[in-house]
């Protein structure tokens, strides 16, 4: 079962990355075009999000009918329920960076394969930002 679980992680990572590539979301200009509601608005990201949430929602329906995952012994769902200052501050900071570059973690990692200097700077900086948080500001639950 552990072998299948690992194989599924590889395949599902590839499905995610291939989906990103098809969707156009590996292109920072397309992402920023969606965020540019006052300018030349590009709705593409809205279609990506709608398609993704729809299918992930069907997965959620399946998940709620299972007592445990098919390849593992239990579901690991987020335990926090409180909308707190950490959540909102973190999301706000994340959004500023996302808007500046047009890159978020998934597309940025996949974009490494394209070798553009912008991504080769962005991804190490993103990892430094993550480590800075985990060293300085972690509350021990994430």
């Amino acid at each position: 079962m552990a072998g299948l679980r690992l194989l599924s992680a590889l395949i599902l990572g590839a499905v995610f990355g291939f989906g990103l590539a098809i969707s156009g979301m590996l292109d920072p200009a397309r992402v920023r075009g969606f965020l540019d509601i006052a300018g030349n608005w590009d709705p593409s990201l809205g279609f990506v999000l709608a398609g993704a949430v729809l299918v992930a929602g069907l997965g959620r329906l399946v998940q709620t009918r299972l007592s445990h995952p098919l390849l593992s012994d239990r579901f690991h769902l987020p335990e926090k329920t409180q909308i707190d200052a950490r959540l909102i501050t973190g999301a706000a900071i994340f959004g500023i960076g996302w808007g500046m570059a047009g890159l978020c973690p998934g597309p940025a990692v996949a974009d490494l394969m394209l070798g553009a200097p912008a991504v080769l700077v962005f991804v190490p900086a993103m990892i430094v930002g993550m480590l800075l948080h985990d060293r300085l500001a972690a509350d021990g639950t994430c």
Partner: peptide, 20 residues
């Protein structure tokens, strides 16, 4: 974009259903 998004959703759905 819609099809790519659905593949992303499929990955998220199966990662939860299979790996939890």
């Amino acid at each position: 974009s819609l099809v790519g998004g659905m593949l992303i959703g499929l990955s998220v759905a199966l990662f939860m259903v299979l790996n939890g």
